[in-house]
Design a protein around this nucleic acid. Structure first.
Lengths: 332, 332
DNA sequence: GTGAAAGCGCTAACAT
DNA sequence: ATGTTAGCGCTTTCAC
């Protein structure tokens, strides 16, 4: 059997309470007593049991993180931001992949709550009423990262995706492009689909260019979806001279798709991606892209969650981080 | 206050023990009783407290995962394999980044043990005596993933890195290359440095080609390290006609480094990478590389850990997965 | 098939 | 500054 606080108390000739005080850094312990206890701990190789502590104190210093897919370069970067800040505030993370599957998501929320996490960081696609319901019922705070709650009821950290897409497409239009294509995510996806597509449309409205739906392809965020989109876009009688892709990975696919057809990037067609993942600098031509600060979104959302967990005052629970466009070789 | 098993027992008019049986799927409950309990649970919105259960049962159904950097495309893929199998066996994962820093690693092991994880999955660089000591003292099983224990005492899942490197370099030599360069990791890194470098040397010995240290560059696994290596390799009076890089990311850097100097890949120099990360197909030319089944290493190591946690019989605790070379456009 | 009761290892009043 | 004690919510014998 493992050594317990009781054993230490006995060994040091003090009470359990005193040992607990020492272990938890409570200042109300005489230095001499503290030393006795520390020595006993050392001698016995005592290691506090966080589960027992969690039961008694109703705090686990553990937060649940629900993420669509940790193997995605995008989410992996976000997760790192989350974990770094969590570590800074002495929390551990229980990491769960949801594959953006609603049933899994709901199930995971409940599992995490059973495990008595002190808070939940959620990344996903659509926040349905059922999600909202679960979050409302949650006894611990929930923060969304890179995930939109249309109703604006759940604390979240994002950039303004629509504005970012608007900016990127407008920049293309201002360079003289009349036919700007888009490779979008599913329009049911609030962030990578709907928001970015809306930005694309608004940029056209704003420039008074008529919207041409043949210029829009829908992809599943994969490299291959980008390649396919480029090829089909290029087959048209009047192909686009610039393409805005909803993710970097699709943008790479678009570039290579065009290149495979003998089309030169950026000479014949300019390409702009979204996210600024590490991929963007690891291709030729390097990718012009909308910078979404993934690490920061993770870090800021975790920081926000710690504030809620500490019951600190929070002035604004819907945080919108700035974005910008990083110009590289895939545009002229 | 949250509803407890006691409340449910009261509501259903049975004892706590019976509720516990129902919740845990114990068959020794009359169907009628079970229904009463289930109804009460439903009515009260009861959610079992896993922390209390963990304290009473001494099992948390949680495993600790120590990983150098989740934002690395390589480890992220591994992590996904780990998580999928963990989920399959009803475990959750506490994910910790170590940055391959020894002190952090040791500290994390202790934190995880305090949290009473049922097992630990460790990914890192060198396994020092201190690591070995910690693992030996651990009350729960430990498995290494993509990490070598030279002493062969700790269960682990890997491929044969040296053989894989040998195969890759030998293939290059057999194509007629007399001057094969290498971009290695630090030789203090057992896997990406020492093992792969040894394979490189052995391939030369085997082919009776004298080893030329000017052909070897050391990189930090980054894209830029690969670029720099290519440039310095190319500055030599007698540059290599083929290069083997210890990781895909460095291989990409090598390719682009050469391209930037006007050297053609694969015409002027052939390049082989290592890992087969998703990057390998997202560049032009696509990358010939040694396939390391990252997802599988994660999955198999987690499966192995579950066997230890269940005290199942394990025939071989040092598992070596097969590797192969995937030929793409960066070689002729 | 069900219940009673003793912990699991710790924290947090409350006393002293 | 330190000790006493009552839980925290559950599992697990052991009875019946």
């Amino acid at each position: 059997m493992n050594t317990t606080i009781y054993d230490v108390a006995h060994e040091a000739g003090v009470s359990m309470a005193t040992v607990s005080r020492v272990v938890n850094g409570n200042p109300n312990v005489k230095p001499a007593t503290r030393k006795k206890v520390l020595d006993a701990i050392e001698r016995l190789g005592y290691r506090p049991n966080a589960v027992a502590r969690g039961l008694a104190s109703k705090k686990t210093t553990t937060v649940g993180v629900i993420i669509p897919d940790i193997s995605s370069i995008f989410f992996a970067e976000l997760a790192r931001g989350i974990e770094d800040i969590a570590t800074m505030y002495k929390y551990n993370i229980i990491l769960c992949n949801s594959d953006q599957n609603k049933d899994k998501e709901i199930h995971l929320i409940n599992t995490l709550l059973e495990k008595q996490v002190d808070g939940i960081l959620f990344m996903g696609g659509e926040i349905t009423d059922e999600h909202a319901e679960q979050f409302k019922l949650s006894p611990v705070p929930v923060v969304l990262a890179a995930t939109l709650d249309e109703k604006g009821e759940i604390p979240s950290v994002n950039i303004d995706y629509q504005q970012a897409a608007f900016d990127a497409v407008t920049a293309l239009i201002e360079k003289g492009h009349q036919r700007v294509g888009m490779v979008s995510g599913s329009l049911e996806d609030p962030v990578n689909g709907y928001q970015k597509f809306s930005g694309y449309r608004k940029a056209h409205e704003n420039a008074e260019i008529e919207f041409d739906e043949t210029l829009v392809a829908i992809g599943d965020y994969s490299y291959h979806a980008g390649m396919d989109a480029a090829k089909s876009l290029n087959k048209q009688e009047n192909p686009p001279t610039a393409v805005f892709a909803a993710t970097d990975e699709m943008a790479l696919g678009v570039i290579h798709g065009f290149q495979d057809e003998g089309i030169k990037v950026p000479e014949d067609v300019e390409v702009v991606g979204f996210d600024n993942t590490r991929l963007a600098t690891m291709v030729r031509p390097t990718l012009t892209t909308v910078v979404q600060p993934m690490y920061d979104i993770g870090a800021v959302s975790m920081r926000l969650l710690t504030k809620f967990m500490n019951k600190e005052e929070v002035d604004d629970q819907i945080v919108v981080l700035p974005h910008r466009i990083e110009y590289r070789q895939s545009t002229k």
